[in-house]
């Protein structure tokens, strides 16, 4: 009996090795469509799609195991591009463009546990153990990963407000709309 168990264990180790090698081999020989799809995804590894990162999401998409509408930060543009690439028709009406947000940490509630710091996929959070943490808004891509990790609910999202530098004119209404009011005519 002991012998059998031993051989099974040994077999497990060997098989594991083979599978590992196969996975490695497969990774190198990545399905070309999968590589292309990976390029189309944001690459921010935010995990909002439910997969660990963009590569895993791309693999699932390539196999037709995930909907083209899976990527929240990609918004309508990415969903459209994915549908075109995969040659599928999808109902995109529910796909919303991502809101421009960044995370903010409430000073009073932060206990300096470093959990959010480790969760942030772009290293946008600065701080050290037992010290108040802060988010660099310019780097934050609004994935909300940190919110889930915070044991004291100290993190919330803030909408990025337009500034004079980023504001621009809205699109004019169609031709039934108003004419250009700042221009004089004869």
């Amino acid at each position: 009996m002991m012998m059998d168990v031993g051989s099974l264990t040994a077999m497990g180790v060997v098989l594991g090795g083979v599978l590992g090698a196969a996975a490695h081999f497969l990774k190198v020989e990545e399905n070309p469509i999968e590589a292309e799809i990976k390029e189309m995804l944001p690459g921010s590894q935010c995990g909002q799609c439910g997969f660990v990162g963009c590569a895993q999401a791309a693999a699932a998409l390539a196999k037709g195991e995930a909907p083209v509408t899976l990527c929240p930060p990609g918004g309508r543009a990415v969903a459209e591009a994915l549908a075109k690439k995969l040659g599928v028709t999808a109902d995109l009406s529910a796909v919303e463009d991502p809101r421009d947000e960044y995370a903010e940490i409430a000073e009073s509630a932060c206990i300096g546990c470093t959990k959010c710091l480790q969760a942030c996929s772009v290293d946008a959070i600065v701080g050290a153990a037992k010290q108040m943490h802060g988010v660099i808004p310019e780097l934050c891509h609004g994935c909300r990963k940190c919110i889930e990790t915070c044991p004291t609910n100290a993190i919330h999202m803030v909408e990025v407000e337009p500034t004079i530098a980023t504001w621009h004119w809205p699109k004019p209404d169609g031709e039934a709309g108003a004419a250009d009011s700042t221009h004089t005519h004869h």
Binding site: Q45, D123, L139, H168
Partner: peptide, 28 residues
């Protein structure tokens, strides 16, 4: 005026996603 503003905003977003991608890869 709208199109020039929207294109500039797009370019800003592009730069941001590029930054996010590079930083995520480094983090990974």
């Amino acid at each position: 005026n709208y199109a020039k503003g929207a294109l500039a905003a797009e370019a800003r977003e592009q730069r941001k996603s590029e930054l996010v991608r590079v930083r995520s890869e480094a983090h990974q």
